[in-house]
Every structure is written in structure tokens, then in C-alpha cells.
Amino acid sequence: MFRKHALFFAAFVTAGAALLSACGGQTDGTPSAAPAGAAVDAGDAGGLDLLSGTARSNNAARDTGDLAPASAPADVRTKWVSLRAGKAGNLNPVVINGAGMTIYRFDNDSPKPPKSTCNADCEKKWPPVKVTKGTKVFIAGIKKSAIGVVKRDDGSLQLTIGNWPAYTFSGDKNPGDTNGEGVGGTWFGMSPTGGKVLDGSASGTTTPPSDNPPTPSGDSKAATSTILFDDAFFSDNGASQGLSFGSGDNACQNLARPGVTSSLTTDGTLKLWTGPNCTGKSTVVDSDVKDLSTIGFDDAIQSVHFGA
């Protein structure tokens, strides 16, 4: 742990460099009577640019996107959105944005078709995660297929996860706050698949456990890029390093900083090795891993092979 924290301010190799209610159960008094917003495919008409990793690991500009002040112009605030599966309070895993704020969903909304019913005063308390065509969306621990957009009543576009519109809460003041959890019995933290995450300490229920990475199916393509985070849950509190694989590259690559990785993102099948030059103990993953301790590889990776 000391070794990892000592590297906090060290330069790190990024994937960007390597690759380039009180609203309660109602809205503004009554549910909106406007026609349901039309769902827009993120990879098509929505025009979102989906990228693996976090804002920091992709060298996103500071004071823009999730880190822009509320007074910034809309085009600055929608330059990018960062979404990662993390921990906040008793919620685990829950989606967290690039500023470390918890993402919520509203039970009064609809996923089929996607529709936001939080407008007017409700929108002030629960700001929608708005995007525009070209917005970069950095994702870690969330499948690209879960990301979409929906047109709101005012014509703006709101990001969705698993077809559920995504929001932050004005009552959350600091990263990791979960003051919106359970408000009105209709607002809950959003899971990486768009489901609701329940606070076990408040509701008497248990928080859904973190998923171990699924057993590789065997039909995934070989990875072409990976970002390895020093901390679990793709946290930007520590450093990260990126690797990429292209034509003519060696499929086996050693890490510049071995033995410090606790979570990783990958765009395909990747074989992890505990020794240099793809030696030692190994395991295969084909999806993001939010906590490598769950598979016995925390702080153990020294090299990776792009493909099984």
C-alpha cells in the first residue's frame, strides 16, 4: 500500500497517450404529460464517443466535463462524462462520475421506452447527466452496450445506463456522498447495469456483491488496449498505466511499473501473468475487473499477453 501511495504524484502512462428530495415520488407536482422521449442509440444518432478507462487515464481536460463548474457553458460541461463502477458509502458497486459523485436513477422514470419524468424543480434537485453529440464517455466496469441516451422534454439529451436515465443529486456535496439514496422511496444509486443499488445499513437489505469477472467465453476478440489502475474500482486517486497492441507489436508486454495493479479495463481477451515476459502464474479475463483481489491477482501483475 505504501508503495502505491508513494507513486500517487508520479508520472504515469495513460491509455490516452498510448492510444491517443426531495422530489420523492413525483416530478414538478405531476408526471409530465409530454410524449415519452425517444431513445437514441449511443453509437449512432446519439453520437457519443465511448472510450475505455477514466477521465484521468484518458488525459481529459481539467475544468471541463464532470469537473467543470456549474457556471461553465453547456458545451464545456458536456465535453466528457466519466462513469466507473465504484464504492460510495454503503453502496457497492455503484456508478460514480469523474468528480467522484454518485449517479442515481428514479423509479418514476421508464426504461421501455426510456423516459425521464424529472423536470422543472425536480431537475434542479436531481441534475440529469446531459450529453451532446460528440460527448466523450469514459467507462470502467460498465459495458458499452449499457450506455445510451434519451431525448428529454426540452429537447436535450440525457445519458442512460441500461435504458434508465442517469442523475446526480444536489444534496451530495463531496465525493462519495450518498445523500440521495432512498429519497422518497424512489431514488437509488445506479448499478453498472442500470439497476438500483440498495443501502444495506438503511433498508435492512444487503448490497449486491461485487461480481467476479465472468469466465471467458472463448469467442472474445484479443484485446488491443488495457488500462491498469493502482487502486481497486478504477480509482483515479492513484496512478494508472496503459498498454496497447498493434500490428508488429509483441503480444506479450511487460508493465512499466509491475506489481501495483488492483483493477483494470480491457477491450478484449487479456492474459495476466505474475512474472515478466509472460511467465509465472496466469489467468485470462475478457472484461473489466474492478478488484483483482477477487481473482488472486492484486498487486501481482508483471506482464500481460494480448489474447489468451
Rank of each mutant, 00 (worst) to 15 (best):
K271P: 01
P208S: 10
A39N: 01
D236P: 02
T30V: 09
V76N: 01
G86P: 03
G29H: 03
L20W: 09
T224F: 05
C122I: 03
A70C: 00
G43D: 12
D153N: 13
R105N: 09
G248H: 07
S303P: 04
T226E: 06
L292P: 02
D41T: 10
T193R: 11
T274G: 04
T30N: 12
S263T: 08
S110H: 11
R62D: 15
D249M: 08
S225N: 09
V150G: 00
D121H: 10
P69F: 00
A36G: 07
A10V: 05
G37W: 05
D44N: 13
V81R: 15
G16C: 05
L7V: 00
A17F: 11
D63C: 04
G200F: 03
V131P: 01
G141F: 05
P31R: 13
N163L: 13
K130V: 07
K144N: 09
P69G: 01
G65K: 06
A36M: 12
W80C: 00
N108G: 03
K281Q: 14
K112Y: 09
A60P: 05
A99M: 01
P276V: 13
D291C: 01
P127R: 07
N90Q: 14
A18H: 00
P114W: 02
F9H: 13
L20A: 12
V95R: 03
K221R: 12
N250K: 15
K115Y: 12
P175N: 09
N179A: 14
R62K: 11
N108L: 12
V260P: 01
K124T: 14
T27K: 08
T261V: 15
D49H: 10
V40M: 08
F9I: 05
M101I: 00
G141W: 08
G98E: 05
C278Q: 07
G37M: 05
T261I: 15
D231H: 14
D298E: 15
L91A: 06
A88H: 08
N254R: 01
W164T: 03
S52L: 15
K124R: 11
G53T: 04
A60K: 02
R56A: 14
C118G: 00
F9N: 13
G307P: 10
G46E: 04
F106S: 01
L19Y: 02
D230Q: 12
L292Y: 05
N163V: 01
K115H: 12
T279E: 07
L292W: 03
V94A: 13
R77Y: 00
G189N: 03
A11V: 12
G246L: 06
S303R: 04
S57N: 10
P35N: 02
S32K: 04
G176N: 07
G47V: 10
F2P: 09
V40N: 00
G259T: 05
A10R: 14
I227L: 14
A308F: 06
I227W: 06
D28K: 08
D107Y: 05
S82W: 10
K221H: 08
P35W: 07
F306D: 11
V285G: 06
N277P: 02
K130F: 00
S116A: 11
T265V: 14
